[in-house]
Simulated assay, not measured.
Amino acid sequence: MKSRKKLLSLSAAAVLSLSLAGQSFAATSTFTDLEQVAAKDKIISLQSQGLVSGVSSDLFQPDAALTASQGVQMIVKALGLNLNAINFFKAPQATDYFAKANNDAWYAQSLIIAANNDLKLDTELDPNQKWTKEMFTKELLIALDGHNIMHMMKLPPIAIKDKDDITLDALGAIQAAIYKGITTLDADGNFHPQADITRAQAAEMIYNSLKYIHPATGQISTPDSTGDVPRNGQSQPMIPADGQTGQVKADSNVYENTQYGFRFTLPNSWKGYTIVTDKWEGLSVSDTQAANVVESGAKISIRHPEWTSEQPRQDIPILVFTVDQWNELQQDKFHIGAAPIGPSELVRNDKYVFALPARYNFAYPEGYQEVEDILKSNPIQPIS
């Protein structure tokens, strides 16, 4: 598995703080100007996670037009981008990448991060320029696609009444954003691509993007005396009856799943790990049924004991397929997720194939390199 580290020479941590400055305020209080805003709850949720900032500690200015610098910062924060894996010969400046930037401005660090994380921004970007709905949607979808989060797959045609107002190179991104529920048309079927996008509209798109990338998990199921998550009174270790997420906490550093038949050996530092259960969904590849779920199965994630919602770490995700499902996936009869490549097989037994999701570590969270090293040691073995 390839690491994305770039080897230069001077530690980025030594030359610049990675916290976004200027308009970045701690979410110590809820914004006071959201009462009439439809996306109020979404904005507050993003604020509580430190993913959006106001123009002051208590004002968000939801109806103000979004500037390019504000839009870039939203995208950088949403994708969790940083400079942790990059070393520099000299301290980077925003003007190294964007001639119209101000190196002393609040947005300088977010521009540097964006430029070093392959966001395809124009070098002539004016940080103070107001972004239209088309501009923000295009940049957001390009960023998601560029980090293998949302591959621009072939989509069914979407009727947009004001399609002629959309620039040709932005049309694909806008159609994908509509199709994935990241943005919507108005009641008349118009997108208004050339209208300035407001800060509230942009924040809502960020929220919807994260919801698409990380579908909400359900209730936590309580394990029974065997350590398995019960379903309908029976000992069934993975998917709870309602398909929602269950969790099992383990004191050993060996996870054994008797329902599907595999054993996963972890380093001693993972003792006390948690098992988080969910499901994968396979979508039809037909244009006319693109949103139809045609297959599904268990997704089992092994979570590091130091994982917290405030400081998440890289999970070890395992997708469980029947052998027939796996064969159909290889024959392109359905697809999983938006990545351009499919899952990779880890091991199999007579009934099931256990696979690693494509681009599982797209955001490179804390511990991703450790997980890569664990997976290189062939830790998963089939059991009868």
Rank of each mutant, 00 (worst) to 15 (best):
P215W: 01
P215I: 06
P215C: 06
A216I: 13
T217N: 12
T217Q: 14
T217L: 15
T217I: 13
G218L: 07
G218S: 10
G218R: 11
G218P: 10
G218F: 06
Q219G: 13
Q219P: 08
Q219D: 12
Q219R: 14
Q219M: 12
Q219S: 14
Q219T: 12
I220P: 06
I220D: 13
I220F: 10
I220L: 11
I220R: 13
S221L: 07
S221N: 11
S221H: 14
S221M: 08
T222F: 02
T222Q: 14
P223E: 05
P223D: 05
P223T: 04
P223Y: 00
P223H: 03
P223K: 02
D224P: 00
D224F: 00
S225E: 14
S225W: 03
S225V: 08
T226M: 03
T226A: 06
T226V: 05
G227W: 07
G227Y: 07
G227D: 11
G227P: 11
D228P: 02
D228R: 04
D228C: 09
D228W: 01
D228T: 08
D228A: 13
D228F: 02
V229T: 10
V229S: 01
V229E: 01
P230L: 00
P230K: 00
P230T: 02
R231Y: 02
R231D: 03
R231H: 04
R231K: 15
R231F: 00
N232T: 03
N232W: 01
G233L: 01
G233S: 05
G233W: 00
Q234Y: 06
Q234P: 01
S235D: 04
S235W: 01
Q236S: 10
Q236T: 10
Q236V: 14
Q236G: 03
Q236L: 09
Q236A: 07
P237I: 07
P237N: 15
P237C: 14
M238R: 14
M238Q: 13
I239C: 11
I239Q: 13
I239M: 15
I239R: 15
I239Y: 05
I239G: 09
I239V: 15
I239A: 13
P240A: 11
A241K: 10
A241L: 11
D242A: 08
D242L: 06
D242Q: 09
G243H: 06
G243P: 09
G243Y: 01
G243W: 03
G243L: 05
G243D: 09
G243K: 07
Q244V: 07
Q244R: 13
Q244E: 14
Q244A: 12
T245F: 07
G246A: 15
G246L: 06
G246E: 10
Q247D: 10
Q247N: 11
Q247T: 14
V248D: 08
V248L: 07
